[in-house]
Design a protein around this nucleic acid. Sequence first.
DNA 1: GATTGAGTGGAATGTAAATTCCATTTGAGT
DNA 2: ACTCAAATGGAATTTACATTCCACTCAATC
Lengths: 272, 272
Amino acid sequence: MTLPTQPKTIDEVFIALGERSVTFPKRLKQCAEFVAANPDRVAVSTVAELSEAAGVQPSAFMRFCQELGFSGFSQMQKLFRSDYSQKWPDYETRLAKLREHGSESPSALLAEFIDVGRASMENLMVSIDSAALQEAVDSLSKARMIHLVGFRRAFPVTSYLGYAFEKMQIPALLHSGLGNIDLAHTISDQDAVLAVTFAPYTQRTLQIAEEAKERGADLIAITDLVTSPLARLKPTFLLVAERDVGAFRALSASLSLAITLAVSVGTARKKI
Amino acid sequence: MTLPTQPKTIDEVFIALGERSVTFPKRLKQCAEFVAANPDRVAVSTVAELSEAAGVQPSAFMRFCQELGFSGFSQMQKLFRSDYSQKWPDYETRLAKLREHGSESPSALLAEFIDVGRASMENLMVSIDSAALQEAVDSLSKARMIHLVGFRRAFPVTSYLGYAFEKMQIPALLHSGLGNIDLAHTISDQDAVLAVTFAPYTQRTLQIAEEAKERGADLIAITDLVTSPLARLKPTFLLVAERDVGAFRALSASLSLAITLAVSVGTARKKI
DNA sequence: GATTGAGTGGAATGTAAATTCCATTTGAGT
DNA sequence: ACTCAAATGGAATTTACATTCCACTCAATC
């Protein structure tokens, strides 16, 4: 028998499967085929479940794992699980490690932010609630005035929306808090309020959102967690889970969502 | 205590989280926020791992699961695992499908922006001039005051930088053009000016950049083309080629670059 | 047709994890 | 400042799982 060295990546597993499965006896071949066809299930199932689904005994599955060079199923599952979490690596610790090793050149950091941004956008793509998005577009399209509310880290989002709406000649008011003048009293029941806030949530945004609800305006919320205080107000709810790098986030996903809203509203308005 | 009925879908879990987490005590709230932020991890981790990542004791995490109506962690994980397998038919294919079906719906447009954003970021990653980036960080680190200049579509970038520098207690001045008061006269030769502008270039940004040069301040430019008028001023030159969707761009790459600058300057300053 | 050894299934075992329980701490109300 | 209830942390217990072992089967070889 060849002495199988333990695979370090999923790809290595698949290569090994391709090469060796021809020489496997019947049951092991069954295992190989099943794993090849359902790699995702390996991460979340037990030996019992997998072996049953593959039509073999648990012990056969064990032998299969060992045949591939793993000490057992658990070790193999660990690999499949870590591959999954590569989609969402733990950036906090990764960044901490970068700091330790002192190799924190600006370009390395840029790579980090780009990576996080990409992951956030991919996640947004699969997790976005199309119905809610459409609802938001509808609300904003029929509103007499669009109020844009978002401070601190959310301000780039609202300010970009302010620019986009201005460019398309859509009436929108950017609440900036300038001069400590609160514009919440200008919200009417024919308006729509787009509130953007991320943890730690800005008090002022929440206040304005509440007032918007009281005044009977449509409320659309862009926020980062289902536990966001904005959720209590039952708004049209758009969730953007954006990962932090250290204390900051790239905002890529939030801005993509924002500009999508703006352009959609722009085209919707032209049709009317 | 209310007797919470056991959630049957992930969405129900999130709804419950949104409604109830406000009334949760500290530790349970931590759990709620962690799960809300990392739903994916729940499927592939143990109680011990999750509770550690959330910063609570395993037993607290158990109470959290029960509070949501599950008999324990295992039951909750089962739900997350079944959802996980459904999520796999995935980003690439979904994106492709959305694009085929014509860019009518908002989600199709979102796919478009995300794709463009990703391309821009990847492009930035390979095209970035590390030396120039390092030079920019050095300039900004030793500056007495950082002037942030960028209007219209570039304003989200500068305003985010303003936020980041404020948070890190680094002296930075956001030129907003507010009240038509020009702050260019406050630029001294010990300062650094970070000018951001994209075609069609804002006149005002160019003016301020020129004045900065005259006054002997360091000039760092973030712009989109080598033919940018800013290039004539021989600044530290950071190029971000961002692709448009229609008349708009997602700004993902520019913001990633900006936040990288901010964090790098933050760490560099701490070292001094 | 007997002999041997790889391949197999299922029961037995050990272990790592979830779960429960209880002593201690915290915080709100008097 | 004192009381009491709620929340918390950690140790004890139990469960559920991976893993191992061994008796049995079947096919190949002589």
